[in-house]
Design a protein around this nucleic acid. Structure first.
Lengths: 220, 220
DNA sequence: CGTACTTTTGAATCGCATCAAATCTGGTGG
DNA sequence: CCACCAGATTTGATGCGATTCAAAAGTACG
């Protein structure tokens, strides 16, 4: 796991200089990270299935995914992995800033590059820079809305309803492009992967869906 | 629906003067509402099933439940009511502050008293009072954690597992006291009420639960 | 080129949703 | 005070749909 200071002059071989201005494209609030916070931000690379932090660890950093995918996971009683959050570009575990310790594990789902903003500096930036604070509140509000939609979806009783709801909530004009395997999608929908595959086939056969690889389009 | 200015001098007959200091007991952040915001805050009473705001309405107020219960609800395709949030004391629809329009309906589940903080004044207070802003961020982070726990719970496949998870997450030392009907609890657990009743009976008969009215205690 | 993981389908089982109905409860008005 | 009503609670019977177990084919990656 590589860990480097942000300062391009200190970059080790094989790491690219970070393009701060473009963080705005990743997530609006990321573009507003103030100078003082940038200066203490580190960069970290993590390989597939590598652990970023563990449940119980004290919260030292706020993590920002700039490429790849990071996941918050927890193990249920049977030891099965439950995905609590997936981030492909943007912050992860936003709510941890408010805790002393992490409530779940974070892993890289593929080779992933992260920025590590020290939590203390992050809190200080929130206190001192109103625009940043405001944007962070919007960020949190967005997470809340997204989670409410997911709860609403998970409370639907049929696989087909959850798929339709997902397309409506996450897609545009009835079209959604998946950025994950179907196994992971199934878990996000609260289904077994077998149930998802079967329901997708049925919905396609009955003309409700058009499926082309990761592009899924609702028809009726 | 009664609507009164907060100022006790202007209180109409039948309304009590509000006890601001004690709002801290309702929710930490509520105790930090700054003077300027208090002065423009109104009070409102709503009867059972009365609508507080509607989906699509422009966001004019932030609502704080001081007695009774308010719910955020949405109707699924079949017209069945889905509960997105229940508040018995504390803010409701926190994320709406960041939107122009409401994304769901809010109703009173029983006779309920609310405080209405004008959204513009609320945003201004967040900008001007750092302590309030910080507390609001904690509040949002708490909502995020709660919602993640609910998503985790809803992704469990068996009724018994969801009940156990609920007791662990919402209760203390394996004991939880319900503050809602079992029908509403069933909906929150993503189950039909019949499934909940049956599973509760089975778990009780098998010695996993002890049930005394609304007090439910996990044994094994 | 082999290994690990995903995708896909099959068959059997089980649990939950659904429909139905009886009892219980709290609140309303006569 | 009691009759009544709406909604909550509880149990029964039935069927469907999702889980579970199993296995084959496809795919990515070193």
């Amino acid at each position: 796991m590589g860990l480097y200071p942000y300062d391009p002059n200190h970059m080790k071989k094989g790491t690219e200089a970070l393009d701060w201005p473009n963080l705005t494209a990743i997530q609006p609030v990321a573009g507003l990270i103030p100078e003082a916070l940038r200066l203490v931000t580190k960069r970290q690379d993590a390989g597939t299935r590598e652990r970023i932090f563990r449940i119980g660890d004290s919260v030292r950093n706020v993590y920002l995914v700039i490429s790849g995918e990071a996941r918050l996971i927890r193990l249920d009683r049977r030891g099965k992995e439950v995905i609590l959050q997936r981030s492909r570009g943007g912050f992860i575990a936003e709510a941890s800033l408010d805790s002393r310790n992490y409530h779940c594990d974070a892993i890289a789902a593929e080779p992933t590059t992260l920025l590590l903003c020290p939590a203390a500096a992050f809190r200080q930036a929130l206190e001192r820079v109103p625009a940043f604070s405001k944007a962070w509140q919007s960020q949190l509000a967005g997470v809340v809305r997204k989670l409410r939609a997911q709860c609403e979806r998970l409370s639907l009783h049929s696989a087909a309803d959850r798929i339709t709801h997902y397309i409506e909530a996450e897609g545009t004009d009835g079209v959604v492009t998946l950025r994950q395997t179907r196994m992971a999608w199934a878990a996000e929908l609260g289904l077994t992967h077998e149930a998802l595959y079967r329901t997708l086939r049925l919905m396609r056969e009955e003309g409700f869906l058009e499926i082309d690889g990761n592009r899924i389009c609702a028809k009726a």
